[in-house]
Computed example of a mutant assay.
Amino acid sequence: MQGVLSGFVVIAVVIAVGYGIGRAGHLGEQGREVLTKLAFHVASPALLFTTLAGADLSVVFSDRLLVTALSTAAVAGVFVAVGAVRRWGVGRTTIGALCSSYVNSGNLGIPIAVYVLGDASLVAPVLLFQLVGVTPVALTVLDLAGGGRKRPLWQRLLTPLRNPIAVGSLAGVTVSAAGVTVPGPLLDPLTLIGNMSVPAVLLAFGISLRGSALPLRGAERAPVLLAVALKSFAQPVAAWALAAGVFGLRGAALLDVVVTSALPAAQNLFTYASSYRVGEVLAREAILLSTVLSVPVLVAVAALLG
C-alpha cells in the first residue's frame, strides 16, 4: 500500500501549499485564475502532446480499454439522466458527469500503477481513453453549452479544434500514429512546459479552498453526493462486473482495471470547471471527497483482489 499512500501524500502536500499561498495572498486576487489559465491553455496541452506522442496506441484495442469505456459510460450516463430529470443544466451536468467517471490517471494513477500494480503502462489505456475520447467530447459540449449567439453548423463541428487541450491530445495521437519522432530541441521545451501542468492544477485547487464552506453544505449538495457515490463506489463495482462477468478477466488483469477505476476524480476537472465558469463548487467538492474516500476503497480493492 506504499504506492497508494505516497501518491496521496504528494497530492495533499501540493494542495496544502496552494492553500497556504491563498491564505497568505502571495499571488494576489487573480492567482488562482492565472494558474488555471496557465494549466488550461499552455501547460496541459503540452503535457498531453508529449505524453501521447510517445504512447503505444495498440492499447486502444485492449480489453482493459473496453472495460474502462463501458464503466465510464455507465456511471456518467446515470449522472446525465438524473441531471436531465432534475434540470441541473447542460454545463453543470457535464461537469458532474466528468466528476462521476473521469479518474485521476496521471499524477495519482501513475505512482499507484508503479507501486501497487508493478507497471506504469497499465494506466495507459485509461489515460488515452480519457484524453482522446472523453476530454474532447466533454469540452466540446461545454463550449456549445456556453452563452452567446448561435454559430453556424460548420463552426460548431470545428469546436474541438479551438480547444487547446483537445488540440494537444489529438496532435499527440497523430504524431504517435504516424510513427514520427519529435526532435529533442522541440520536445524538450514542450516537456518542460508540460511539467508545470500538474503542480499548477493542484496549487490552483488548493488556493480555491481558502474561504470555502465545508463540503455538502451548499446548493450543490445533491449533485456532489451523486457524483461522489458514482465515482467512489459505482464505477469500481461496474468495472469489476464487466471485467469478471463479461470479459472473463481474472487475477492481475482484473485487479488492474478495478484499481484504476477506483481512482478519485481528477484535479484537472476543476480546471475545466473554472475555465468555463460552471460547476466550480461541484467539481471542487466532488474531487475533494472522492480523493478522501478513494484511500479506503483502493486499500479494500487491493486486499480483496490482490
Rank of each mutant, 00 (worst) to 15 (best):
L153N: 03
G206Q: 04
G7C: 02
V4M: 01
F129D: 08
V182F: 02
P185S: 06
V141K: 01
G245Y: 11
L187G: 01
R250C: 00
N107I: 12
S169K: 05
S274R: 15
L170G: 02
M196W: 14
V224N: 04
Q130I: 11
D256M: 01
L158D: 01
L108P: 05
D188N: 11
Y272E: 01
S169T: 11
L202S: 02
V90C: 02
A124Y: 07
R87W: 01
T191C: 02
L122Y: 14
S290T: 12
V301C: 00
V13I: 12
A73D: 07
P111R: 03
A222V: 15
G3F: 05
T159V: 07
R162V: 05
K37E: 14
A222W: 12
A266Q: 09
K150R: 15
L38H: 13
L161F: 10
P185I: 06
F8Y: 07
G248Y: 08
V137P: 01
P264Q: 05
I11K: 02
T159K: 06
L5I: 13
V123F: 03
A302E: 14
F270C: 07
W154F: 08
L65V: 13
S100T: 12
F49Y: 14
G133D: 10
A53R: 12
A239F: 08
L122D: 09
V228Y: 04
L5K: 04
L170E: 01
L161A: 12
E285I: 08
V42F: 09
Q267E: 11
L128E: 11
G147S: 09
G54E: 14
S290D: 09
L226M: 04
L242Q: 04
Q2F: 10
T260W: 10
Q155F: 01
S232W: 02
V4P: 00
G28Q: 01
A273G: 06
F129Y: 15
G7Q: 03
V198G: 00
Q130E: 15
V224P: 07
